[in-house]
């Protein structure tokens, strides 16, 4: 059973569809990244999953329930930006979250503040915090009571490089204990470093999803060169294994029809045609490259 099941979820604002027909699932222990350009529907999706926004159609369920309030006490969340009372100290703001989640004792609050490096500032008024400190407090509130699920929208906004590395370690540690993290970010490098799965959105629709290695594999190209390039080209274009074949300098760059197709299979096919490759290598795209090519092709722009 999936931890989160999203089925045909749509949200319409006036005549504009913010998201349309989203279907995906998240299993326990996954770190699932939600990617998309500005306005692609990431925050709307997370807002619906957290009970803040009502979907126009479709369903979702955490732990096989339909958006129950009790389930939300098991989810640590940060949506868009941290939201706290400016006239309260950091500690008192977390106390409010603790009251709602039914967490008792000061230990949990101190631990959460310590995890994000804010324990020395626990009695500082929220209005006196810098942007990065506010973001850290938002993450502390999400971590409060060690919930089994974290939902974070752009969690590293406003945090310096050192802080980002610290947060990354925190999230990896969180996931290593079998917990589930759903995170949206525009920092693709971060997503690639920590996520096991991705859902890529563009204009409110899913354009790719699955385990991150598989998603990247889908666009992984193989470079081939041989002494007889003309024969090689003929064989490659006629082969049923290959989707596309383009010349790139001194090599041919091919995209296999089946993403599971290995370099060995290609080599075996070439050998069967008495072609011996002088250069044969799989080039995996970075998430950023893949993301940009997906989004730009969807938007009718030239691929990067």
């Amino acid at each position: 059973m999936s931890l989160l099941e999203v089925s045909h979820l749509s949200k319409q604002y006036g005549s504009r569809w913010a998201i349309r027909d989203l279907t995906f699932s998240v299993e326990t222990g996954q770190i699932c990244g939600i990617l998309g350009p500005n306005g692609s529907g990431k925050t709307t999706t997370l807002g619906i999953l957290l009970g803040c926004t009502r979907p126009t159609s479709g369903t979702y369920g955490w732990l096989d329930t339909m958006g129950s309030d009790v389930v939300r006490t098991q989810i640590g969340a940060l949506l868009e930006k941290p939201t706290f009372y400016p006239w309260l100290q950091a500690e008192a703001n977390l106390q409010l979250t603790a009251v709602i989640r039914g967490i008792t004792g000061r230990h949990a609050i101190e631990k959460a503040l310590d995890q994000v490096g804010l324990l020395p500032h626990r009695q500082t008024l929220y209005q006196k915090f810098s942007l990065g400190m506010k973001q850290r407090l938002g993450i502390a509130a999400a971590l409060l009571g060690e919930p089994p699920i974290l939902v974070l929208d752009e969690p590293t906004n406003g945090i310096d490089a050192e802080g980002i590395a610290h947060m990354r370690a925190l999230f990896m540690d969180f996931a290593s204990r079998g917990k589930t993290l759903l995170v949206s970010s525009h920092i693709l490098d971060e997503i690639e470093k920590i996520c096991s799965h991705v859902v890529i959105l563009n204009r409110g629709a899913i354009v790719a999803q699955g385990p991150i290695q598989e998603v990247l594999q889908a666009e992984a190209t193989i470079e081939i060169a041989a002494s007889d390039m003309d024969t090689l080209q003929r064989i490659l274009t006629e082969s049923t294994l290959i989707e596309t074949c383009t010349k790139a300098g001194d090599v041919f760059r091919i995209l296999p029809r089946d993403t599971a197709c290995t370099v060995e299979e290609i080599n075996r096919m070439l050998v069967s045609h008495h072609i011996f490759a002088s250069h044969l290598i799989r080039r995996k795209q970075s998430l950023e490259h893949h993301f940009l090519s997906l989004v730009s092709s969807e938007n009718g722009q030239v691929s990067v």
């Binding site: 957290l50 009970g51 803040c52 309030d69 009790v70 939300r72 006490t73 098991q74 989810i75 969340a77 949506l79 868009e80 930006k81 939201t83 706290f84 009372y85 400016p86 409010l96 979250t97 709602i100 989640r101 509130a141």
Partner: peptide, 12 residues
Amino acid sequence: QGTLRKQVMDGA
């Protein structure tokens, strides 16, 4: 300040 939304997200 978005605190109503936060409290709903927190499980209220």
